[in-house]
Design a protein around this nucleic acid. Structure first.
Lengths: 324, 324
DNA sequence: CTGAAAGCGCTAACAG
DNA sequence: CTGTTAGCGCTTTCAG
């Protein structure tokens, strides 16, 4: 692997001149350019990014921190984020926490060490102070922390759309499952909006309180079973993706027809992604929009001119196999 | 962001001494260690990885190149690969080609530029010479190229297991779909083994020839429809993941019962991953094993002592919802 | 238009 | 045990 000095020697010029030629900076005579190009080819020169990175103090990498890439909603966003960031000449370092807060912390430390130029945290679980004291470009997906940008999604609309669709389809005893409440987590608002809208329409909502801490299907299956046992009257649910799938599985197993006897609307559907044989009806949070906005916000911070106005992501109803 | 020199100044020692203290190399007196620790804390020192990277000529990153992360089989492997590589203190740079050969090339060039220390290519589509001339640590998943390691999977066993299961369950007119033939792509052998085994048992296999170039569900749906129309007698299929899902969807739509009237076995199932309401029966290619082996082979190359014997990954039958 | 020199932040070799 | 020096490979002043 030839370096720039070897090129310079062979072309009989100074290293600085080679660098200028490579980067098209400043004037270079036709003559020397030719000599340099020749040397470049002969020695099959390839620049070393590690050296460039050090000089620029940039890695052109974004750290993506999340518990588990198999979560379909996150996955859809990551897919688009990779594409978006590429347009800015940025790559993605994939960091999974496996639900360990300690891991999230460790990765954010790596952000400090300049292993990446910025990070996005999908499920931020650390104390808000931690983010605030980081002093590095950062975006959170679903957490409000003073001073740290996050991607707002129209969660109220999500709740309203779901309520209306279920009501229109004739559901009158619907369920929704809410976990730990926190003002810092904007997505929780969708349940409030859902309940409000459903009651306004004249339906009944049974709110199930259940703390959860993972995205594993088995856990959700048990939960679904328990709930269905407790609530035999229920005829519909508005639930996070995996819980929705769990309900579908359990209902099928019980021999109850979906959507005829029971409808399911997922809270966080993803557009375009559809690798399942039965697709959940869902309120779609467009992955591409989210990814685009993330990229814009990250780049703004890196370039030193933070984006002032972050777009609120619009959502829409997708009618899949679990609604009429 | 304080650097090592500022720490040295404040602690009244030389930068080299600070470096030794940080890395626990050579002897350091209690006294100076204390001074250094104090300075480290006061200035909130964080080492700069870009500088380290340059010095070591290492990024501690592996490039993962694949067409689309939403492909469930690849996704399952990536998930485990991230976990495995972390044990070696390595991270993953996620590079998707969106089915463009040009992109694969571009990413491999980045490997040359030392943006990553090694790469794994899930669906290598370039000329073999390209890989051979790279001169950088590399692993392919499913392609035999002289001189480049790949992860062998027991594809013959996969075909045999699927054939036996279908036969046992009473299927006698089964289908399998094969694309372009190439001796360089080991996974194609499973179809040969499948056909052989099924015919040995006394069943009939109809081989559908179809070139394909993407992993999109819609495309596979159309294909499934066409095939089912042409082959009304068929009562089972051994097919790649997405095509299997497509068959399931189309059969359901047609009102044909799965698995009673038609069985489906996917060629590339993944253990543990099960985010679908109906799970395909499949021959499982254990993601964790594959990822472990990939990591081992990559690290071997990076450390300069290439792994000689790469384990062949064993497969096993998983009985899901699409077989009896 | 080009060369020389300094430096990004860190580490290792070598004196002392 | 610690300081000095050189250098990883590149880029950017600053002279000339």
């Amino acid at each position: 692997m030839a370096n720039i000095r070897e090129i310079a020697e062979r072309a009989q010029v100074a290293p600085g001149t080679v660098s200028r030629a490579l980067n098209n900076k400043g004037y270079i005579s036709k003559e020397t350019r030719k000599k340099i190009d020749k040397a470049l080819k002969e020695l099959e020169y390839v620049p070393n990014e590690l050296a460039r990175n050090l000089y620029r103090n940039r890695s052109n990498m974004i750290g993506v921190i999340l518990p588990d890439i198999e979560h379909p909603f996150f996955l859809g966003i990551i897919k688009k984020l990779v594409i978006e960031l590429k347009k800015y000449n940025y790559g993605v370092a994939l960091w999974t926490t496996e639900y360990e807060a300690r891991e999230e912390k460790e990765y954010l430390e790596r952000l400090k060490r300049n292993a990446v130029d910025a990070a996005v945290v999908f499920v931020p679980v650390l104390d808000r102070a931690f983010y605030q004291e980081l002093g590095r470009p950062l975006v959170l997906l679903d957490r409000i922390v003073e001073g740290i940008p996050y991607i707002p999604i129209d969660q109220e609309k999500s709740g309203r759309l779901a309520a209306r669709k279920l009501y229109e389809d004739g559901c009158r005893h619907v369920l929704t499952v809410v976990g730990e409440q926190s003002d810092e987590i904007p997505s929780l608002k969708r349940h409030v909006a859902f309940i409000k809208e459903m009651e306004k329409l004249g339906g009944t909502v049974k709110v199930i309180r259940e703390e959860w801490n993972n995205f594993e299907l088995d856990y959700h299956m048990e939960l679904a079973e328990k709930i269905l046992e407790q609530e035999p009257e229920a005829d519909g649910i508005y639930a996070a993706d995996i819980l929705g799938t769990a309900f579908l599985k359990v209902l099928r197993r019980m021999g109850r027809n979906v959507p005829e006897e029971f409808e399911i609307i997922s809270t966080d559907g993803i557009d375009e992604s559809n690798h399942a044989a039965i697709s959940l009806s869902a309120v779609i949070q467009p992955a591409e929009m989210i990814a685009k906005e993330m990229a814009r916000v990250l780049m703004g911070q890196i370039e030193g001119h933070p984006v002032k106005k972050i777009k609120t992501i619009d959502v829409y109803m997708y009618n899949g196999d679990t609604t009429k």
